[in-house]
Amino acid sequence: MATDAAKTHPWHIPEPSPWPIVGTIAGFIMAVGGIWYMHEGPIYLFGVGVLILLFTFYGWWRQVIIEANTAGEHSEEVKVGLRYGFIFFIASEVMFFFAFFWAFFHSSLPILSNVAQVWPPEGIELIPAGGVPLLNTLILLSSSATVTVAHHALIDDNRKKAITWTWITAILGAIFLFFQAEEYIEATFKLSDGIYPSTFYLATGFHGFHVFVGTCFLIVCALRLQKGHFKPDHHIGYEAAAWYWHFVDVVWIFLYINVYIWGSSSFGHITAG
């Protein structure tokens, strides 16, 4: 990296990097491969894109970790910037889910749409909100608590405790995903059975994907904790993982209240019979 003898500002100006263009190539191949797959083609081209994307993640973030830990590029000012950046990323994610909630309300509430009919539509066998979804709510809420325990342990320089509770959080995430998958398998409606499954599967599916990403993020953080990457006063990556985890938790609470509970009630809906 650059020698900092002449540097008079706190900012991190990285050297030229191949990762942005490699990541773009990954995205381009995934787009073309995805379209090919959707039009009766094989899926391997899409898979090639995903592999290049994962390679980009590995190479790019590996370099960021080196810059943070070895090269000392993360000044206090740079850390503030990284936090801002991640918060804004989460804000954009919130607006992505906003679209799917809009689709759900528009489709189910006659006050919002001229064509909203009986909700839940006839023939849809609902997943009882008090069953597995309630269990998953408890699991995810607990995991938000456990990640906080881990984070506080990290701040208190209790690395062992932080490692344990981060792994517990990641395992809770995996259990949530297991139950969510089981719920999908046991559901009697499939994706193409009309508007109810459309909104249900895309909203909960994108949430599930975010839980998957967040779980991977937590596992990486647990491994990095074990390697001693994080300091009590310098652990931006860990903070980001914790914030992301709280974000998927909040999205789930909205999903649970609106899609599972309100969606199976008669409030505001036209009900059958």
Binding site: W102, H106, N114, V115, P121, D193, I195, Y196, P197
Partner: peptide, 14 residues
């Protein structure tokens, strides 16, 4: 999926 197709209960206005 049927987000925008009335035959599946969806709505192009969405």
């Amino acid at each position: 999926t049927a987000f925008f197709s009335p035959e599946g209960g969806g709505d192009p206005i969405l």
